[in-house]
Structure formats: structure tokens, C-alpha cells
Design a protein around this nucleic acid. Structure first.
Lengths: 167, 167
DNA sequence: ACAATATACTTGGACATCCTAAGGTTTGGA
DNA sequence: TCCAAACCTTAGGATGTCCAAGTATATTGT
């Protein structure tokens, strides 16, 4: 890790792709690899900002989702779909959130199978504090110029739609 | 997961950000969240393509790097920097690659501290097969139009440079 | 009604990755 | 010669993902 490299390693890989004759795949390879690297940069930043709050980005997303829901409660399945993670992953996150008292699992009034997730008062506080920190320390100064952030979001939205994330 | 959602959940989150008055942070939040979601989509695809080869994307990257190096061998540190992962993570990956006979650790001719990584013949074969599959099944039809892939790479390159990945 | 099927969620285990801290070797400069 | 620095591994903890299987409840169709 450490100090900056003299040249972008992904650009180098792209050159290799081209020089081996995989021209058609080179741009895609470079873009995908860059997405993964960028995600890992952001995830590291977010997690380090959230650590003092006892949260990870995955768990923050759960809290944020609950904070935005009208009733303040959501079935696991619904949350799992909106967050686009496996039910087992969500179970895992919720276990930890419940263990630290930020979230509660309650019975669904009519369907005995489903459990509703609900923010506790503590959870609401943790969410507000964490969100403020993320806004200040990550989102407000992400390293993405506004125009780039918008364009990036547009491109990724097209891709995510095409890949079946949403209609 | 399952079926497509009626609306993009990240766009919804963005709306929430705006309606709470965090306009300045909304675009950045949406872009970052979308990057993470996209990375997870790609990682899943890549890993499922590579599983039959006994590889993960992380391990594939190690093989690819060795395959491109002039001498066919690289010090751990050098590889760790180029792949931008922690030395311990690389040790872990290399342990598995060595256990399956795809990579070898050899002595550095002059520096007793450093170990060189080297592809075995088997490793070179595995790399070629895995790379062909990735090219065909992921990169050739990634879901990213060429123009989008290029623009995406440009934006992320600017960001990665700004965040200290390379000069 | 009742059996078959589908849905909701959890559990347990296998993997993988990251991080921190610590320790062994080996270099290389003061 | 001696000490700080560099290179790598080991160990342990925390997280997150996936899969397969299991429990409980609801729904469907006969």
C-alpha cells in the first residue's frame, strides 16, 4: 500500500490486455477492476469513520434504511431486498445490531413468519451521529467532483438496471 | 435479492438525503453507494466464473500480475503494492495458491529478506484458462457499453489518483 | 379439511478479506 | 560494529459472503 505508485497499475493491466490482442475486453476489464479498487477505498474510509460508533458501513445501511421507513419498521425480507444483500447476511448484521441494542426484532401483527426490524431510541441516536460523521468526513469531501459523482451515478444506474437490480 | 425492485433503492436514498437538506452530500452519497453495490455485483460474477478454476478474483489478480511480469517473478512487497492489498492478505492468497501448486515462493538471488513469487507451469495454465473464461463471460459482455466503460474508468482514475493510489 | 408447496428466517460451516500486533531475518547506513 | 529499517510470516479477532439444511408459518389446490 503505502506511497503512491509511479503508474496506475490498472492502466498497466489494460495495456497488457491490449498488447495481447484482447482489445474488445480491455476497457471493460479496466473499468471493472477500477470499480472494485474504488469500492475498497470507500469501504475502508467509511468503516474507519464508523468504527468509533461501533458500526460498519453494512450495518449503517441497515440503520439508515430503518430511519427512512415510514412506520419505522420493516420485514427482514423487505430490508434484504432494498439493501440487496442475502437474507443470511442481513441476519448476521441484525444480530450484531440487536446485540448492541440499536435494533429490535418484533413480531409481525398478522404474519407469524416475518419479523419486523425496528430502531431503538439508541439506534436512532447512533444513526444520527454516524450519519453526520459520514456526511462531514466522507460525503462532503469524497474526492469526487460533483460532476463526476453525478456522471458516475448515471453510468452505474444504467448498469445496475441492465443487470436486474431494479426496473 | 431475487426480482428487480420497482425503484432504484439508491435513488430513493438520495431523495431522502435531499429532503433532509443534505443536498451537498447527496450526489456523493449516491455515487459511493452505487460503486459499492456495483463492485459486489461484479465480484459475485467474477467469483462464480472463477470457482470452477479453483480461484477467486483476488487470487486471479495475483496470477495475472505474475503472468505479466517480465521475469515471471516478483517480490511479495512489489506484488502487494501493485495489487494494493495488505501484505498479510497477499500472504494469505499466496498460501492458497502455493497449496494448489499454482505459484511458488523462491529465494531472492541477492536479498535474503525477500521472497520471489513465481508462476508454476500449472499456474500458467490455470491463468490462461481462467483469463479466457473471464474475458468471454464477464469482460466481453459486462453490461457496460464501451463508452460507459471508458468514461467510468476515466472518472475512477481521477479519483484514485486524487486519493493517492498513484502519481 | 388436508396435503403439497411456498415463504420467512435462522443456523452452522466453509471461505475470504482486512486489521493489528508481534516476531524472525536480513540489510544497509551511521 | 550496531541499530533502525525493510521484508515477510504468524496469530487472532472482526466482518461479510455463500451454501445447505432446518424450523415455523402461510397459502394453494384438490
Amino acid at each position: 500500500m503505502s506511497s503512491p505508485l509511479p503508474r496506475d497499475p490498472i492502466a498497466q493491466a489494460r495495456d497488457q490486455w491490449v498488447s495481447h490482442g484482447w482489445d474488445a475486453e480491455a476497457d471493460s476489464m479496466a473499468a471493472i477492476t477500477a470499480v472494485m479498487r474504488t469500492a475498497s477505498i470507500f469501504l475502508q474510509r467509511a468503516d474507519s469513520i464508523l468504527r468509533p460508533h461501533g458500526l460498519t458501513f453494512a450495518r449503517f445501511e441497515v440503520l439508515a434504511l430503518l430511519g427512512f421507513s415510514k412506520r419505522g419498521s420493516l420485514p427482514m425480507t423487505h430490508a434484504s431486498r432494498l439493501l440487496q444483500v442475502h437474507a443470511t447476511s442481513l441476519t448476521n448484521s441484525v444480530d450484531r445490531l440487536e446485540a448492541t441494542g440499536l435494533v429490535r426484532r418484533i413480531q409481525h401483527p398478522t404474519d407469524g413468519r416475518t419479523r419486523l426490524l425496528e430502531l431503538t431510541a439508541e439506534g436512532a441516536n447512533a444513526l444520527a451521529a454516524a450519519r453526520d460523521d459520514l456526511n462531514e468526513q466522507l460525503f462532503a469531501d469524497s474526492g469526487l467532483p460533483v460532476a463526476d459523482a453525478r456522471e458516475l451515478f448515471q453510468i452505474l444506474s444504467r448498469f445496475r438496471r441492465a443487470s436486474g437490480d431494479f426496473l
